[in-house]
Design a protein around this nucleic acid. Structure first.
Length: 200
DNA sequence: GTCGCGATAGTCT
DNA sequence: GACTATCGCGACA
């Protein structure tokens, strides 16, 4: 898919559809010549001024301006004063909709991720961990997901993975909306419990 | 495996 | 001054 079309797709797709579509896509970063890629396995939708749980519910602020920049933009914010979290902005400029990337599976650069995380396990199974493993910080807030250091690449889940819809996590408002998606490998008999790890 | 809890600082009221 | 789109660790099963 040409990149101009990708921007078009992200700017016209409803956020409630993007939360499904982005599952299985890849996020690839290149910082200081170190490339890392994950497959997205967990997402949450935040629907702008219609959504009390969204950072953009009360309109534009200094923090959330990237979320109003239009589909194809990366929105990065600091969570709990400690962690960075990444969002794919969706919809036309000014609408303030985005999909939070909550988790993924390492595809490329797993060793780099271990170094950045300072540990060998739980590399990308949470929004703060995912951003840290990919080397994403507030410096990348507002950059293009088509041309910037953090890029989005369409893709599909492998066979034998399935997606479930649940309520969102860690929020206190509009908790009834089932706007979270999580993909897990389907258990095969004889499988001793690998974490759904993939090869290149 | 699950549960509880403290750390920590930017953002908004 | 209060709240937070989280994480890691230790306790327990």
């Amino acid at each position: 898919m040409p990149s101009t079309d990708l921007t078009e797709v992200l700017q016209t797709m409803p956020v409630t559809e993007a939360v499904d579509t982005l599952i299985g896509w890849r996020v690839s970063t290149n910082f200081d010549g170190r490339r890392t890629t994950v497959m997205i396995t967990e997402t949450e939708a935040y629907a702008g001024t219609d959504d009390p749980a969204s950072h953009t519910y009360r309109g534009r602020t200094r923090r959330n301006q990237a979320m109003f920049a239009g589909g194809g933009t990366l929105y990065v914010y600091r969570s709990y004063g400690i962690h960075w979290c990444m969002n794919v902005v969706v919809g036309p400029p000014g609408t303030g909709h985005a999909v939070l990337l909550r988790g993924g599976v390492p595809i490329v650069g797993e060793e780099v991720m271990r170094v950045r995380r300072g540990r060998a396990d739980h590399l990308t199974d949470g929004p703060g961990k995912l951003a840290q493993a990919l080397g994403v910080t507030g410096a990348a807030d507002g950059t293009s997901l088509i041309r910037g250091p953090v890029r989005l690449v369409p893709g599909d889940l492998p066979d034998r993975w399935q997606v479930t819809a649940t309520t969102r996590i860690g929020i206190t408002k509009a908790t009834e909306r089932r706007w979270r998606r999580i993909a897990v490998p389907i258990h095969r008999s004889g499988d001793t419990g690998g974490r759904g790890r993939l090869r290149d």
